[in-house]
Design a protein around this nucleic acid. Sequence first.
DNA 1: GTAGTCCTTGGGAGCGCTCCCACAAACGCA
DNA 2: TGCGTTTGTGGGAGCGCTCCCAAGGACTAC
Lengths: 339, 339
Amino acid sequence: MALTLEGIARLAGVSRSTVSRVINDHPSVRSEVREQVWQVIHETGYQPHAAARSLVTRRTRILGVVIPEPIIKLFTDPFFPILLYGITETCNAQHYHLMLSLFHHPAEQDDQYRRIVGNGHLDGVIVASAHMDDPLPLRLLHDGIPFVVVGRYPDERVHSIDIDNFGGSCQAVEHLIRLGHTEIATISGPLTMTSGADRLLGYKQTLSAHGLPLNPDLIIEGDYTEGSGYAATKRLLMTPATAIFAASDIMAIGALKALHEAGKQAPRDMAIIGFDDVPLASSVQPALTTVRQPIRQLGSAVAELLMGILADPPEPGSAAHKSVLPTHLVVRQSCGAAG
Amino acid sequence: MALTLEGIARLAGVSRSTVSRVINDHPSVRSEVREQVWQVIHETGYQPHAAARSLVTRRTRILGVVIPEPIIKLFTDPFFPILLYGITETCNAQHYHLMLSLFHHPAEQDDQYRRIVGNGHLDGVIVASAHMDDPLPLRLLHDGIPFVVVGRYPDERVHSIDIDNFGGSCQAVEHLIRLGHTEIATISGPLTMTSGADRLLGYKQTLSAHGLPLNPDLIIEGDYTEGSGYAATKRLLMTPATAIFAASDIMAIGALKALHEAGKQAPRDMAIIGFDDVPLASSVQPALTTVRQPIRQLGSAVAELLMGILADPPEPGSAAHKSVLPTHLVVRQSCGAAG
DNA sequence: GTAGTCCTTGGGAGCGCTCCCACAAACGCA
DNA sequence: TGCGTTTGTGGGAGCGCTCCCAAGGACTAC
């Protein structure tokens, strides 16, 4: 491991510069020399020292993934693991490394931000946030650190990729309407999160588009946890609702439980549709109709976008990349349309 | 951001060396000078350049977490997210950073290993493996990289921390025996994983210790997935078993489903005990009796151990650290002892 | 045969930091 | 007062790499 460029150069009978050129794929090296040098590199297992290299190139090939504190509660939700899976997959392929930062305590956040971002460790950052008022993107913008947001962020300078929360919930609610329901309730996600707000908007607009009234009693804000789905459903059982669109599968599972306890069952007494298509969704009783979102692709796309920005920085004034990945309805038993 | 030591030195009216001493807490600096320098550092928001620093110190304050490929399938299991949570928490507190490596394809593994470990990016590695025959620890040992294994590894030179899989399953099986069961089945985890093997061993030894025979028909190997729990239970329903010890909650949930489909229910027709105490365990119907394992503490402990080794390397010949964190039984409805 | 060109190679400088040695000033002791 | 010792500070060297400039050789064109 104590091997340096100079050592390889000596072994190959060339100069330090030539070895450097070979490693960095510089064209002006004779092909015999190039092969000769590669051979020595392979034989010795030489790897350039990352710190020395990035001291001069100002690049580390490390991306940061920052998951802010409010979201961490949801970490047992499969969303983040799958997202990370997609991100690492793409990073590996392009020989980038990944630094994971979970912001635990808001009080430490400032200090942590500086440690992570200020010392040149990272080439760019993936912000896995979905809070509209997250201050992190603005700070990164101010510091000139390339970054990409997972989700939607209401600032035109911010690059982001989201899944189609709005479209997905439109599909879900439309499906319920098509099945003849008119009293359709929703258990929303937290409205401070863009996904929560967007899924609720899809619900509202679809009802309106079909001339159905919005009944405030049928709209209950949850927080993506099973408990909140359970509690909301207890209340909804006292309304005329015949169908529930839950903004997450986990909440839908809570709804199923409340139904069960009340001696009722889906879809006979209440149609249920969830959102996410977590692995569990297909194996609960009854299997959950839900909106599938391409989480892994989202991770890949976000990593790809960031690496693209690093490789070829967009012009200062140009518009930020904003895109949306499609979602689609997966019909199973809980809505009453299948087998 | 273009601020360097030299710049701070000029602003504070001292030399580069003095600023370096202040930052590194070297004692021989007059306290007035020290304060003066700190003030300039705070005002300017200066951060030492990580690459320059680690070029000379040969330290990066980055730990790697490596999750090998075979385990990735289980990534949606809350185990890894919670483990990562514990690890990051402890790393943050000690100003270490975390680099996450998921080994996706076995074919790339070799290449990936070199890229991650060979270039001096990492001070140490946490191997989140539980496979007995994982080659990674041996390779790290050979390359002299400090590392710690999460789980148990059958090599005396390898530092590791595990949770008490054996003791936990002893408790579970003993509980079933105490409730009067004599025909106790088990759905084990994969036997190539230490956790799978150890949990099965606890089952076997506890039965033997109580003079109960081992019936091979009552032992079915699963793979920690819900599907395998479901399939195993279908088979167990055709045996005299009156109780099932499932080596994971997810498999226990699969067992519950199979029971339900057969028109039976726990604990009346079959007592069920799981392992892990995942969040879902308390909210399924009936709530799952299970063995709780301190995953987050496991993460913290592992990070702590590795950082300790880095700060104060053990003598070459000294024994490796091997420890086990306690597990304990959480009694709920599914075993028939509560409510 | 000489000048101009391109191609390939070598070596100096320098990235921002830490470590070490040297030196000045302040102090203690005979 | 003179010596040695301690304390605090400054600056050179060098970590391993990339970048740039210069120089040698081969080649073409006049």
